[in-house]
Amino acid sequence: MNATAGRPRRPIGELTVEDMRLLIGQDIGLPYLLPLALKVLRDNPMAEGDMYEGDLLSAVLTRNPAVWAESSGLGRELRVIVSELIDLPLDLQQKVERFLIQ
């Protein structure tokens, strides 16, 4: 099933945090969406879609490590963002730790 089935198409610049979370979680358009997501996360690392606080960060952190190898600049930027976070919920903290040891 197409991730955008039943949803109106919109320009990439008009995607919501929830749109990005869903698409990134399905590995759709990562070369285009990860830079946008990191821009959001720079301003608000705990940006929230429709699930829970930090759900965009969770989607970004759990991409295949190969994604970050291909986009090392983005990976470095994400490392900077997460290295400054404190008092994260346990589940999100574990995702950060797994990302950092990749």
Rank of each mutant, 00 (worst) to 15 (best):
T4N: 15
A5Q: 15
G6I: 06
R7W: 12
R7Q: 13
R10H: 10
G13V: 05
E18R: 03
D19T: 06
M20T: 08
L22K: 08
I24R: 00
G25L: 03
Q26K: 13
D27H: 10
I28T: 09
L30H: 02
P31E: 12
L33K: 00
L34P: 02
P35C: 00
P35S: 01
A37M: 01
A37P: 00
L38P: 00
K39T: 06
N44D: 15
P45C: 05
P45S: 04
M46A: 10
E48M: 13
E48K: 11
G49L: 07
M51Y: 14
M51A: 13
G54I: 02
S58V: 02
V60I: 09
T62A: 09
R63E: 15
N64I: 11
P65G: 09
W68K: 01
S71R: 10
S72K: 12
S72W: 10
G73D: 13
G73W: 03
L74P: 04
R76D: 12
E77Q: 09
L78P: 04
V82R: 04
V82F: 03
E84V: 07
L90Y: 13
L90Q: 15
L90N: 14
L92G: 03
Q94A: 12
E97S: 12
R98C: 10
L100S: 08
L100H: 04
I101Q: 15
Q102L: 13
